[in-house]
Design a binder for these strands. Structure first.
Lengths: 171, 171
DNA sequence: GATACTGCTCTCGATTTAAAAGCAGTTGCA
DNA sequence: TGCAACTGCTTTTAAATCGAGAGCAGTATC
């Protein structure tokens, strides 16, 4: 853990934490994909390689973005959890997704989640963050009488995929 | 300009544009520091080296984040301008600053701007973006009867610096 | 006892980073 | 009319980092 930073500017320091091509994608997969294990994270859309994943997980733990613990069901399994610091990135993820959707060549199926996050606004983000606190920090669940935000996003994704498969079939 | 992306996910595509340690800092200096010229941008807090700056500027222009034009006052000067795509990052900058301020070892003088942006909220961000559109895109100025957002932020920064200098003097 | 799965680590070539010096002009001032 | 300072870079060289692929010791499953 080095303490020499390039500057004390908050944007610079943020970039020193996740200013690379992979760290935020790992966080993304944990938040939106519910992934907790090394082998799960290895199967990312973008094909991260194992040494890079191992290195980033180690760094993210050192930075306080993740914690690592043993899986009681399997002596060799490690479980990675988001800290509050990482959960607090949800609004930034939402903004980033909205920005990317507007200016970059996104695909429909991979941006439907971003669209729903954008439409849901800060209220939805807060609900999502609360669910993540339950899942990763052991917080007490609030009102469990409706599908979780992640389930809703995932269902929308699958719906787009199903529709696209059907369209391909008809063509 | 390559068209092969790792995936069509909006967050991934965003990272492909500014997922490195320097690009966002250049945008930051243009937005908050009002810098437009190569030599100005070279004098960043973090000490970017000239070859990296040249490379990033080139890439950012290719990506559509910046435009480059001649300075009529000096045949060798180039002026870099933000596009709407880059101006749209202002809310993300504000969130990033707020997040960094909360979780990372920022210095007071370099985070006062982030604090004011956070306190000002979306309304202030919009005003700032409008000012940037006037400055960089030649939009028509709106109501010019008060100091600009950048001036306000800069004044706050200088006030902190002055106070700190005085404290050092007394110590 | 065979098979698959666990979180990694190792090796090695390719790419990226960075500091420093240099460069062909342009401009302002004496 | 000279000269110093300034312009946006480029070049060079060494070091650090990245990344694909293979491999590994220890589970768990059947």
């Amino acid at each position: 853990m080095t303490d020499d930073h390039r500057s004390g500017c908050p944007i610079n320091l943020s970039l020193e934490v996740f200013g690379d091509k992979w760290s935020l994608l790992i966080i993304r997969d944990m938040i939106f994909g519910g992934k907790r294990h090394f082998r799960e994270l290895l199967r990312s859309q973008e094909g991260i390689s194992s040494n890079i994943l191992a290195d980033r997980l180690k760094t993210l733990v050192e930075m306080g973005m993740l914690t690592k613990s043993d899986d009681p069901s399997h002596k060799q399994k490690a479980i990675y959890s988001l800290t509050e610091m990482a959960i607090a990135l949800v609004p930034i993820m939402a903004h980033l997704g909205a920005w990317g959707r507007r200016y970059l060549p996104v695909t429909e199926e991979l941006s439907i989640r971003a669209q729903l996050m954008e439409e849901g606004g800060p209220e939805l983000w807060e609900r999502f963050m609360d669910e993540l606190r339950v899942e990763h920090l052991g917080a007490a669940p609030a009102v469990p009488d409706r599908p979780t935000v992640r389930q809703t996003l995932q269902a929308a994704y699958e719906q787009v995929m199903a529709r696209k498969a059907k369209e391909r079939e008809l063509a």
